[in-house]
Amino acid sequence: MTQPHIMLVDGMALLFRSYHATAPMNQFFRKQDGTPTNGVQGFARHVLTAQALMKPTHLAICWDMGSKTFRNDIYDGYKANRPAPPEEMLPQFDMAREISEMIGWKNFGLKGMEADDTIGSLVEKWKGEAQITVVSGDRDLLQLLNPTTTIALTKKGYSEYNPYTLERFHEEYAIRPEQFADVKAFMGDSSDGYPGVKGIGPKTALQLIQKHASVQGVIDAIEQLTAGQRTKIDADREMLQISLELARIKTDLIIEAAIDDLRLPLWDAAKMNHLIVQEYGLVARHATSLFK
């Protein structure tokens, strides 16, 4: 029997990507009541294009739920440098989830968790029962790779991806996927607002984990390191442990769902176009391009 092919989509990543692709040109594609829809329309087009390319049998969209997560409790500076979403984007978060439901895509998100944690827990839940493709622009998700899971990183436009399999990851990094969080703990992540160990960059961070396997392994072998590395790690040892907690994606969330809940409905382009344009009120001249 052929296994299901589940596509798990990082909804936040695609929504923000789509919004920022058009907002600088003031292309907000407003509804008749003035509500902007540019992020939502790009998001829907992106998922539909990925669906056509990757041909999943099942699909789910994963979302952050709220601006604060458990990582903010661990470290006040987590994502503190990110600006608040622009006003034109605010109504599009709920709109994107509503349109996902209309099309038949299952939405998932847990309060206090990020989309990454929901994706990680769904991968862990179904990795033995399905082939899984994760669609996102976030390289942190590489730590979820396994023999049945591919991470398709967005690359250009709506149809170009940079896919990672377990084999490719091993060739490039020479570590296990779960060790990627240990690498991030040393190098930090400026976009997420945590520094890691100051003075240790991506190359050295990877070399340390390749040789010593984990953050704890490096600490246990600290006398074997260079004097400079020892000084840097000793100065930031507390932040190193915090950074590891921030970098590691949760895979143990309890998510009540069955694979069949994610099965894609059968739509033809005309019927879907009518649903979105007529029932939801998106601007027809832009919505028609979503479903070609």
Rank of each mutant, 00 (worst) to 15 (best):
R30G: 09
I255H: 04
R168E: 12
L275P: 06
I99N: 09
H212Q: 04
T37N: 05
E171F: 03
Y75E: 10
V283K: 07
L275T: 15
L153K: 09
G137T: 02
F29W: 14
R82V: 02
W267A: 10
H46N: 02
I242D: 08
G137N: 07
Y194K: 07
I200T: 06
T118P: 01
T133W: 07
T57Q: 09
L110F: 02
E167D: 05
N72Q: 10
G109W: 02
Q3I: 15
T226N: 11
P56C: 09
M1R: 02
A23I: 12
D76Y: 12
A270M: 06
T148G: 05
Q207F: 11
H46P: 00
S190I: 05
T154M: 14
E129P: 03
C62M: 11
P202H: 09
G66H: 01
A221R: 04
I233K: 08
P56Y: 06
D268H: 13
A21T: 06
Q92C: 06
I61S: 08
Q41S: 07
M239C: 07
M25A: 06
I151R: 01
L142R: 01
F28P: 00
A115V: 12
Y164F: 15
P24S: 09
D189V: 10
I242Y: 11
G112M: 14
T226A: 12
V197H: 08
F43E: 03
K106M: 14
D182K: 01
L90Q: 02
W126C: 10
M113R: 04
G281V: 12
